[in-house]
Design a protein around this nucleic acid. Structure first.
Length: 728
DNA sequence: GTGGCCTCTCTTTTT
DNA sequence: GAGAGGCCAC
């Protein structure tokens, strides 16, 4: 077979990795060194040259986006779509296994996935049952504990209750109750997917045997992000039978907070026999300036495996640094620059705005909308995470599985139908006492007449509604089911009544859900026949639903630094690179977490191919109050020779007036800012042109910002606002 | 049981 | 600044 097309355009190191004989291999791949390329080409090589069938290859990634990308590139290279290949996220593959072997995993056939939001609600209810005071035992903390335990592969039963302090024992009680609740209603959270899949191997050697025989080779992307349970799952599956190609970069490990262990990279060499090591250090993505800046930043981390990226590429432009007066000004600068690039003919998809936290996207969005620039946001509030969508999905889940307590809790009284807290609490108690689901509890309560008449009849109406929905939709296709559900349940009506644009948007989202159902296609590789509804619900839980958006419109890309990993853009704007925001203030005090932030910065810088902008806002409104920020320490770690600081100087030569007391001649130098006592012009820190001018002044132990605009006639400067008097 | 109004809190990243 | 929870009047 001619395999030359698989090896064309690979450098020596890449070719080494691609053509390595079957066996364990660890590829340390720096940013932009062709990591995905190596993975995809290696799979093609294994099939073409090593004689594996697609059926025998498993490829694991972390995000659905990465999985889709890999599938797409494989199809391109192989020339056909691969239906048998197991390509997916850890969670997706675990889910697939559990669906196929639900009996062995001791699950209901219809088990549902509990997402983060529903998990938090469930834990809140449990904490209440256990009489745990919210202020002492925040539900978030309990969730954190439970997930951390699961990530380490520990069930409640594995933890010795005799050991530990009050904290441990309390957490353990909650964990135990939580496990029972999930068990009762047949729901499985994200971490549980991995844990159960691991236990499937441990408790069912015959299954393990089967899969060990089946898989000839496993490839793992982003290996530095594997956590304990994921590593264990791979380790057990592989045994000393199946070989693994692990690709990773310790400098890009950014999921420590989720239990990821960089150490797994070192562990790999110890656990897997005779691993071949390949280092990919030549960067094909970024210009030398960008790469040097990235190298300089990351070199401040200790405990690195050691790797220096180099490039044969051009030096390139310097990194532009811009300090905005506030977040509005920062956004305006970014959008102005974007428009310049677009006017020069650049595709908008080649421009990305990257930020530390989702909350920052809004200001950028508003500025883009004002300028009429199409954009697309990844992540953030996901489609399937929206309140109204989750409610609609909860109804659909009930059609699929009446015993899904999380779904019942969500919609039993949404829209309101006279089933109040009291009734629901009675149901919970009954369910707890009898170890049954809420649905079961409710019907028992009705039959045994344990409820006040009015409550009973309201509850009965709800049961009739669900049964009727189920009956009416058995013959319908997915989109019609969704349509039926949102109408008959009264959800549409409910949101129409909401005032303001919000209700309208929610109605539109619900309609969008119907459209999503219309175009939904089940995973091509279903090995068991399952209802389309069930498949849709699983997809909604595991996939963010980003594929819905029109991917092909030419739009500027907005996303968090985390979700940018693995992507590249011609021009990148890293915004809000301020101390306290990035690195985030929650991470500054712990050296380990600070280093993770720095790796995140490294990831951000290395997304840029040709041009990088770093911006900050000196003052930023966050959560309703103003904060004052200085450039991030990471900016200061970039040697100045790679930076170009953009500062605009205000040159004001016209007459101007300061509020009521208009000066007769114009110069900043001779006036004090009213009410502050600061003499203008003592020292202009910096200034910015926009609609008007914003000036920062400093002197006499104080600083101030003044916004100056033309008056209506455009002949006089007027001070519009002085802001943010600050003692320094 | 419902709905309006108040206060309080919590602020990161994702499957 | 938004969302959740508490409180109160109907």
């Amino acid at each position: 077979m001619d395999v030359s097309h698989i090896l064309n355009n690979l450098n020596d190191a890449q070719r080494d990795a691609v053509t390595a004989p079957l066996g364990n291999m660890l590829v340390l791949a720096g940013a932009g060194s062709g990591k995905t390329r190596v993975l995809v080409h290696r799979i093609a090589w294994l099939i073409a040259a090593e004689g594996l069938s697609a059926h025998q290859v498993m490829a694991v990634t972390f995000t659905n986006k990465a999985a889709r990308e890999m599938r797409g590139r494989l199809e391109e290279l192989l020339g056909y779509a691969n239906r048998n290949m197991w390509v997916g996220t850890f969670h997706g593959l675990a889910h697939r296994l559990l669906k196929m072997h639900w009996r062995e995993a001791k699950l209901n056939e219809n088990f549902q996935i509990l997402d983060a939001d529903d998990q938090l609600r469930l834990v809140k209810r449990i904490a209440k049952q256990l009489d745990l005071d919210e202020s002492h035992w925040p539900a978030r903390q309990i969730v954190g504990f439970i997930n951390a335990q699961k990530d380490e592969g520990r069930r409640a039963a594995h933890i010795d209750p005799g050991q530990g302090d009050l904290y441990q024992r309390t957490m353990l009680r909650a964990y135990t109750a939580y496990e029972e609740a999930c068990e009762r209603s047949g729901i499985v959270d994200f971490a549980e997917l991995l844990l159960r899949a691991h236990e499937l191997w441990l408790y069912h050697p015959e299954l393990l045997q089967l899969y060990r025989q089946r898989f000839g080779h496993i490839l793992v992307d982003e290996f530095q992000d594997t956590n304990t349970i994921q590593y264990a799952w791979l380790r057990v599956l592989a045994g000393d039978v199946v070989s693994i190609t692990a690709v990773g970069d310790d400098d890009q490990s950014i999921y420590g907070w989720r239990g990821a262990k960089i150490e797994n990279i070192q562990q790999f060499s110890r656990d897997f026999s005779e691993p071949r090591m390949v280092r990919l250090e030549q960067n094909y993505r970024s210009t030398a300036n960008i790469l040097n800046a990235a190298n300089a930043v990351i070199s401040h981390n200790s405990d690195r495996l050691g790797k220096e990226l180099w490039t044969e590429g051009l030096e390139g432009e310097k990194i532009d640094f811009y300090a905005g007066f506030n977040e509005q000004d920062e956004a305006r600068f970014v959008v102005d620059e974007i428009q310049k690039h677009v006017n020069n003919g650049m595709a908008r998809t080649e421009l990305a705005i990257l930020y530390r936290s989702n909350a920052q996207s809004r200001v950028m969005e508003e500025a883009l909308i004002r300028a009429g620039v199409p954009y697309r946001i990844y992540g953030g509030q996901r489609f399937y995470d929206r309140l109204e969508i989750k409610n609609a999905l909860a109804y659909m889940r009930l059609l699929n599985n009446r015993h899904d307590d999380a779904a019942i809790e969500r919609v039993i009284n949404t829209p309101v139908r006279g089933i109040g807290a009291k009734t629901v609490e009675t149901m919970r108690e009954y369910a707890r006492d009898h170890g049954c689901s809420m649905w079961h509890a409710g019907s028992s309560l009705i039959v045994n007449k344990h409820l006040p008449n009015r409550a009973a009849s309201c509850l009965e109406d709800f049961y009739n509604l669900i049964e009727k929905l189920d009956n009416d939709t058995t013959e319908l296709d997915l989109a019609d089911i969704a349509d039926h559900v949102i109408t008959v349940s009264g959800l549409i009506e409910h949101h129409k009544k909401e005032k303001g644009e919000k209700g309208q948007a929610r109605v539109e989202n619900l309609e969008e859900l119907v459209s999503a159902c219309k175009v939904f296609e089940p995973a091509e590789d279903s090995e068991e026949e399952r209802s389309l509804l069930a498949e849709f619900l699983d997809t909604a839980a595991l996939d963010a639903g980003e594929a819905q958006a029109d991917e092909f419109e030419d739009s500027v890309q907005l996303m968090t630094l985390h979700s940018a990993k693995g992507l590249e853009f011609h021009t990148v704007f890293m915004v809000g690179v301020e101390e306290g925001l990035f690195p985030h203030k929650m991470s500054i005090s712990e050296p380990g977490r600070l280093e993770e932030e720095r790796r995140l910065c490294y990831v951000g810088i290395t997304r840029a191919m040709h041009k990088l902008y770093i911006t900050i806002a000196e003052s930023r409104r966050m959560h309703g109050s103003e904060t004052y920020n200085t450039p991030s320490r990471f900016v200061k770690e970039i040697p100045v020779e790679y930076l170009n600081e953009i500062r605009m100087q205000a040159k004001v030569s016209r007459p101007m007036s300061f509020g009521r007391a208009a000066p007769s001649s114009a110069s900043f130098d001779n006036y004090a800012i009213p009410e502050t006592g600061i003499a203008l012009g003592q020292r202009v820190i910096h200034s910015i042109f926009g609609e008007g001018v914003v000036l920062n002044f400093e002197g006499q132990g104080k600083s101030a910002r003044v916004q100056v605009n033309f008056d209506n006639q455009g002949s006089k400067w007027l001070v519009l606002a002085y802001a943010n008097l600050q003692v320094i």
